[in-house]
Every structure is written in structure tokens, then in C-alpha cells.
Simulated assay, not measured.
Amino acid sequence: MRKFAIAGIAALAIAGTTAVYAQHRWFHDHMAHMRMSPEDRAAMADAKIAAVHAGLKLNADQEKLWPPVESAVRDLVKIRIDRAKAREAAAAAAKADDQQKPDPVTRLRTRADNMAASAAALKKIADAADPLYKTLDDGQKRRLAMLTHRGHHGGEGWRERFQHGRFGGDRDHDRDRGQDPERL
């Protein structure tokens, strides 16, 4: 009787695990068809930039400092969207030509180039945002943190949003975690 009970519990555990895996797999496959287009990414970036701008409720003097910040943010968004387009085009070409994936050294160089471009764009944002940030009151700083999720999840604000695709961003970090690098 005891062996029968153990076998039954083991069968239930295996069946439950299989059901959860199947559900996860269905969700992943279903969501893969819902990737954002470049136009969707640009529209989402526009909306999020507008939300940050509106949420800050800048005064007239601060408003004069906003255009360089927005321009720098848009430059980074463009870099990330262009990078996503290039990855998608390369993936489509690789499927059509049945090409091999690039070797590890080529991937490393590409990643380094991407990181250098992102670093330069992030520095440009920091340089543009510094004068504005120095004029923000505590309420505006708190709203900025909330709008960019800096304080919410322990992230790094603008960079975190871009990196995780929440500003039309890029998922370079997923390559290191074994996830699909072609996904944005």
C-alpha cells in the first residue's frame, strides 16, 4: 500500500510539472508572436518620455532645460531601436540562408561596440540632465524616481528602463543569461 501511495504521489508530481511546463511553453510561444514593431517601440518611447515630462511639472525656467534632455534620450532610443531592427534583419537573413551563428569572439566584439555606443549615449543623457536635475525640488525628484522606476525596484532609473526595453530598449544583458538575443 505504501509503495502504491508513493508511486501515486510521484505520478501526480510529474503530471503537475508537465502541465506547468506545457502552460509556460504555450505562453512563451504565444507571446513570441506579439513582439513590438519598430513603430510600436518608437510610439512607446514617445509616450514614456511624455509621461516623464508631464509628471515633472516643470516651471518656466526648468522647461528651458528640458529639450537637451529629451533630445539625448531620443538619441539613445534611436540607437536601441536601430540595433533591434538590425538584429531582427540578421535573424531573418540567417533563417533564410541557414547561416551559422557568429563565433564567440565576433559576438563579444559586437557586444563591446553596442556597450560603447550605449555608454556614450548615456553619458550624453547624464550631461544634459545634470543642469535640470539640480533645479528639481524634492517632489519632482520623487516623481522622477517613480516615473523612471529608479526607487521602485532598486534599478538605475533611465538606464534600467532602456536596458529592459521599457523605453523601446535593448536586451543585450539577456545574451549573458542564455536567453534569445534576437528578442527585444
Rank of each mutant, 00 (worst) to 15 (best):
E39D: 13
E39A: 07
D40E: 01
R41P: 03
A42K: 09
A43C: 04
M44P: 00
M44L: 06
A45W: 02
A45E: 00
A47L: 05
A47W: 01
I49M: 09
I49D: 04
A50P: 04
A51T: 10
A51L: 15
V52S: 07
V52E: 08
A54S: 05
G55C: 04
K57V: 02
L58S: 01
L58D: 03
N59L: 12
N59F: 06
A60C: 03
A60T: 14
A60P: 04
Q62K: 03
Q62H: 02
E63S: 09
K64W: 03
L65T: 02
L65S: 04
L65K: 05
P67T: 11
P67Y: 12
P67R: 08
P68I: 04
P68C: 07
P68W: 04
V69D: 11
V69N: 13
V69E: 09
E70Q: 14
S71I: 09
A72S: 13
A72R: 11
A72L: 12
A72V: 13
V73Y: 15
V73E: 08
R74T: 11
D75M: 12
D75W: 12
L76A: 10
L76T: 12
L76F: 07
V77S: 05
V77N: 11
K78Y: 03
K78S: 08
I79C: 10
I79W: 07
I79D: 04
R80L: 10
I81E: 13
I81F: 10
D82V: 11
D82T: 13
D82Y: 05
D82P: 14
R83Q: 12
R83D: 14
A84L: 11
A84C: 09
A84R: 11
K85N: 08
K85Y: 06
K85L: 08
K85H: 06
E88S: 07
E88C: 07
E88V: 09
E88Q: 14
A89M: 15
A90M: 14
A90S: 11
A90R: 07
A90E: 14
A91P: 15
A91I: 14
A91S: 09
A92W: 14
A93N: 09
A94T: 14
K95I: 15
K95C: 07
K95W: 10
K95P: 01
K95T: 13
A96K: 14
D97C: 04
D98R: 08
Q100G: 00
K101W: 00
K101P: 02
P102G: 00
D103W: 00
D103A: 02
V105T: 05
V105H: 06
V105C: 02
V105N: 04
V105D: 10
R107Y: 00
L108E: 05
L108S: 03
L108D: 01
R109I: 04
R111C: 03
R111M: 10
R111S: 07
N114I: 03
N114S: 12
M115D: 09
M115N: 10
A116I: 06
A116S: 06
A116H: 06
A116K: 11
A117E: 10
S118K: 07
A119Q: 13
A119E: 11
A120G: 02
A120H: 02
A120R: 14
A120F: 03
